[in-house]
Design a protein around this nucleic acid. Structure first.
Lengths: 159, 159
DNA sequence: ACACCGCTGTTATAACATATCAATACCCAA
DNA sequence: TTGGGTATTGATATGTTATAACAGCGGTGT
């Protein structure tokens, strides 16, 4: 089953369970989900959309949680390193991870209409890129897989 | 046969044939490969490496071909739209295309040691991401597939 | 000549990201 | 419980990537 992000769902419950999973992850791994980090993650998860660092910063500073770029970038670094959020390279923006903890090589479906982002799985080694890498003797450490296009809803309206 | 970029090769010949292919493309499609654009492409092709827009601009301005950012970005826009160059999203940098003309959905192997970039092929629809997209009713228009790691040469030195 | 259109020149600014250093909080061992 | 190490936060400044906006130039077709 996939791409819950594009479908109607009980988002309040979705957020609650994701936050719980994130907290559990931090507890297990001895990471500190401080107030700024926690709130940053909540903001990223509040919609299944990619948010720029400065968008995040605007939310945080409106709540008195810091007003300078490093505040946002430090929170994002932490979340990304902890696997609780991902950077969307094609947008220079960030999105909360919907299944934190599971060790994963994420791939993304990005709607250019509504900027929604759905997370899927890849297996870098099994792809054609993996074949090319093996043939070239290249050792893959990290992979970026992002597809831009239109989600079902935006196909109807925007055509 | 793949990833000539990481191997020793007659690069002068490689560049010449690529430039010829680019010119042929432009001729066929009625695009104007002006001096700035031509030189920008040569610079991008002069090594199989990703170059930042401002790196490119430095080269161009050293040759009296314009000193302001828009010069570089306009050339890059043209080259990317014409399929003569590609943007590497993970680096916010640009690389010349080694087989212009062939309509392609490129994928890249990016060496973090020497910043070399090799171009491979993907088929977005056939990947697991394509499966996820179909399942979600998502229409893919463009895909970004990039793998970072170490090329054969850098594995030996850097370990 | 002239209108049109694509390209270039230039100024300014927007958007994204990091370096650096000082101050504070937290943890743990002596 | 005190001190020392480490992680986190606060703040200023700056670096890097990218675009908006508008003026001028140069060819093409009529």
């Amino acid at each position: 089953m996939s791409a819950i992000e594009f479908r109607d769902h009980d988002h309040a419950a979705c957020m609650r369970s994701t936050m719980q999973a994130a907290e559990a992850q931090c507890a297990v791994r001895g990471l500190r989900l401080t107030p700024v980090r926690r709130r940053a993650l909540e903001i990223l998860l509040s919609e299944h959309r990619a948010l720029g660092a400065y968008d995040l910063l605007a939310h945080l500073s409106a709540e008195g949680l810091g007003a300078q770029p490093p505040v946002a970038y430090r929170a994002l670094d932490f979340l990304v390193k902890a696997g609780l959020a991902h950077k969307i390279e094609a947008l220079n923006a960030y999105v909360g991870c919907v299944h934190p903890g599971e060790d994963h090589a994420p791939a993304f479906l990005i709607c250019r209409g509504c900027r929604s982002v759905a997370e899927a799985e890849t297996s870098p080694t099994k792809s054609r890129l993996g074949d090319a890498a093996r043939a070239a003797g290249f050792r893959i450490e990290r992979s970026v897989v992002e597809a831009e296009g239109l989600c079902p809803a935006c196909q109807e309206t925007g055509a």
